[in-house]
Simulated scan of single mutants.
Amino acid sequence: MLRRWVSQHGSADELSRATVFGRWTEIVGEDLAQHCRPVSLVDGDLVLQAESTAWATQLRMLAPQIVQRINTELGTRAVRRVRAQGPSGPSWRFGNRHVPGRGPRDTYG
């Protein structure tokens, strides 16, 4: 009854996102959850942030199993695709004003 009400009132995407994010460790397992975390779930596209580029590659290979496990757990086809991102580098942008160009790299020489 609750699933029917949620789907009729257009909150199914938010409920799926909250379930995946809130139960991430339970859904994918402790080992996998230690090395990645969900970043966004929009229109069935789940983006995962990996702790290293090696884990991002591993997640790309495990993507079909992750999709199947999440959809089995939720009982719907909430996730259609998994995209894995490696760790992001530091940002050199500080403040509101920016000058085009290479930035601080030219002062290291």
Rank of each mutant, 00 (worst) to 15 (best):
G101K: 12
H98P: 01
L59I: 09
A54C: 08
W5I: 14
L74R: 04
G29V: 00
W92N: 12
V82K: 02
E51V: 08
G10A: 04
S40N: 15
R37P: 04
Q65R: 10
D45M: 09
I70K: 01
R80W: 03
M61N: 12
R83N: 05
P100N: 02
V99R: 15
A84F: 00
N96M: 13
W92H: 10
A56T: 07
T72V: 06
P38Q: 04
A33S: 06
V99I: 14
P38W: 03
A63Q: 00
R23T: 06
N96Q: 13
R3T: 09
T19E: 12
L59C: 09
L32R: 04
S88Q: 15
S16H: 13
R97G: 10
L62N: 06
D45S: 10
L46E: 00
F21M: 14
R23G: 07
Q8R: 11
V6K: 03
S7K: 09
H98I: 08
H98D: 01
L32S: 01
E26H: 01
R17I: 06
E26F: 05
F21A: 03
S88Y: 15
G86D: 01
T25R: 04
S11E: 11
V67I: 12
P87C: 06
W55D: 01
S52D: 11
L41W: 02
L2R: 15
G109L: 15
D45A: 10
Q85P: 00
C36T: 04
T19A: 11
V99C: 15
F94S: 13
R93L: 09
V67D: 03
P104G: 05
H35E: 09
L74G: 05
V82P: 02
R3W: 02
L41V: 08
N71V: 02
W55P: 04
S7Y: 01
A63K: 02
A12P: 06
V6T: 05
C36N: 05
E51N: 12
A54L: 07
R105K: 12
L2A: 15
R23Y: 00
E14A: 15
A84H: 03
Q65H: 07
G75Y: 10
Q85I: 08
I66D: 01
G22L: 08
R83W: 02
I66Y: 05
H35D: 09
T19H: 09
R4I: 10
N71E: 07
M61A: 14
Y108D: 10
A12L: 10
A12F: 05
E73H: 05
T76L: 03
L2I: 15
L41I: 05
V42L: 12
R102V: 08
V82A: 01
Q85T: 11
R97S: 14
A50D: 10
E73L: 00
P64Q: 15
R83Q: 08
S88H: 14
D45I: 11
D45G: 08
V20R: 04
E14N: 11
V82Q: 04
I66V: 10
V82T: 02
W55A: 01
E26Y: 02
T72H: 10
D43Q: 09
V39D: 14
L62A: 14
V99S: 15
A56Q: 06
F21N: 01
R97V: 14
G103H: 09
Y108N: 11
V6C: 02
D43E: 12
T53M: 03
M61Q: 13
R97L: 12
Q68L: 04
R77F: 05
N71A: 12
G10M: 07
